[in-house]
Write a protein that binds this DNA or RNA. Structure first.
Lengths: 103, 103
DNA sequence: GAACTATTTGGCACTTTTACCAAGTAATTC
DNA sequence: GAATTACTTGGTAAAAGTGCCAAATAGTTC
């Protein structure tokens, strides 16, 4: 059993899971393509294959994506439909970050 | 001049700015109270005052909050109206994190 | 069942983030 | 203008996150 986790910590876990350029890119790729296996995602983002695998399992644990075994491959896909909504807000802020006043 | 920042990196900066329990708590507090000065926020989240100050300026740089000087105090408030939308998505995932299958 | 393909796990060096202390700035009051 | 209040900045030790290598697992084909 894990030590009791506050609602805030659960939220932070979810947010952290997208707070990395590679993981964000993985989410974007899955949003565009629907379903990908690790090799395909690796081809997109580069780096070490094991690193990509670790990023994916972190995102899965956080709830962003789900995986399904199909023969030798593992098919990853987005688990939720709210990524667009999430990014819409992020982009609204990203457009103004570091630029004088906000929004 | 900062080195050129990709759209993805800008997004990551925004996301990272809420990917910490204290910063998330600060955002929640401002969402509830509207406007707070550093001392009030410090009373809410505890820890060292300078730490709170640093969290706030990081959030301001990312675009989440804005600040306004009023005499001795500095009034912080949310800069954008999309925090609710953002958290709605996060909560949808947080409810399922680490629990077998998703959504 | 040996060789092969796809993916995960363990380990470790490296970098980034964080928290606290001490010192600094800025506006206010006396 | 000295003392006070409110906040920020600099420095640093400790903690967390990341990337790559090597080795392990799991399913497939021959």
């Amino acid at each position: 059993m894990p030590k009791t986790t506050s609602k805030r910590d659960s939220r932070v876990t979810v947010i952290k899971a997208l707070a990395h350029p590679t993981r964000l890119q993985l989410a974007e790729a899955l949003r565009g393509d629907g379903v990908c296996c690790v090799g395909e995602l690796h081809a997109r983002v580069g780096g070490d294959l094991s690193t990509v695998s670790k990023h994916l399992s972190l995102m899965r644990d956080a709830g962003w994506i789900k995986s399904e075994k199909r023969g030798l491959h593992i098919h990853y896909s987005l688990a939720c439909d709210c990524l667009g909504e999430f990014l819409r807000c992020v982009d609204q802020l990203a457009a103004t970050s570091n630029k004088e006043n906000c929004c």
